[in-house]
Amino acid sequence: MRASTFFSTALFAATVLAHGNITSPPARQPGPNMAKVCGSAAVSAILADGTGPLENIPSNGNPNCNIFMCKGAQFADNTAKVQTYAPGQVVPFKAVLPIPHEGPANVSIIDTASNTVVGLPLIEFASYADENLAVLPANNTAFKVAMPTNLNGACQVAGECTMQWFWFGTNAAQTYENCVDFVMTA
Rank of each mutant, 00 (worst) to 15 (best):
D111P: 06
S108W: 02
V90L: 03
Y128I: 08
T141N: 07
S127C: 07
H101P: 08
I123H: 10
N115Q: 05
A138Y: 10
S114P: 07
D111F: 01
A95Y: 06
L120R: 12
G88H: 06
E102V: 13
N139E: 11
Y85R: 10
V117D: 04
A138T: 15
V107R: 00
L133S: 08
V91A: 07
A129S: 14
T116C: 09
V96C: 06
V107D: 03
P121Q: 01
A142S: 15
I109Q: 01
P87I: 00
F125V: 10
F93T: 05
A129T: 05
G119W: 00
S114L: 10
P98K: 02
S108A: 13
L122F: 03
A126G: 10
H101R: 00
L133D: 09
D130K: 10
I123G: 07
P137R: 04
A142V: 15
N132K: 14
N140C: 12
E124T: 15
A134I: 13
P92C: 04
V91K: 00
V118F: 04
V135F: 11
D111K: 04
P87S: 05
P104F: 01
V90E: 12
Y128N: 04
A129V: 08
A134Q: 15
I99C: 02
S127K: 14
P121F: 03
P104I: 01
V117G: 02
T141F: 14
S114D: 02
A126L: 10
D130C: 12
K94A: 11
V96Q: 11
Q89F: 07
A134S: 13
E124G: 14
N115Y: 02
I123W: 04
H101Q: 08
S127V: 15
L120W: 11
L120V: 06
A138P: 14
A113F: 00
G88Q: 09
I110K: 03
E124V: 15
L136P: 14
S114M: 01
Q89K: 03
V96T: 14
V118E: 07
A129E: 11
F125Q: 11
E124W: 11
D111G: 00
I123P: 06
P87C: 07
F125R: 13
I109T: 01
A113M: 04
P100G: 06
L136A: 13
V96D: 10
L120P: 04
V118H: 06
N115C: 01
L97T: 11
E124M: 10
L120T: 12
L122W: 03
S114G: 07
G119H: 05
I99M: 11
Q89C: 12
A134L: 13
V91Y: 01
V96I: 14
V90H: 11
I123A: 08
S108Y: 07
P121N: 04
A142Y: 15
N132G: 15
V96L: 08
S127E: 12
P92S: 03
V117L: 09
A129Y: 11
Q89W: 02
L120M: 12
A138E: 14
N115S: 05
V107M: 01
I109S: 01
G88V: 03
D130N: 15
N140D: 15
S127H: 13
P87Q: 03
N115L: 05
L133E: 05
I99W: 08
A105W: 00
V96M: 08
V91S: 07
L120G: 07
A126P: 10
A86H: 11
A142K: 13
E124K: 15
S114Q: 09
G119Y: 05
A126W: 00
K94F: 09
V91H: 02
A129C: 13
G119A: 04
P92F: 00
A129D: 08
N132A: 13
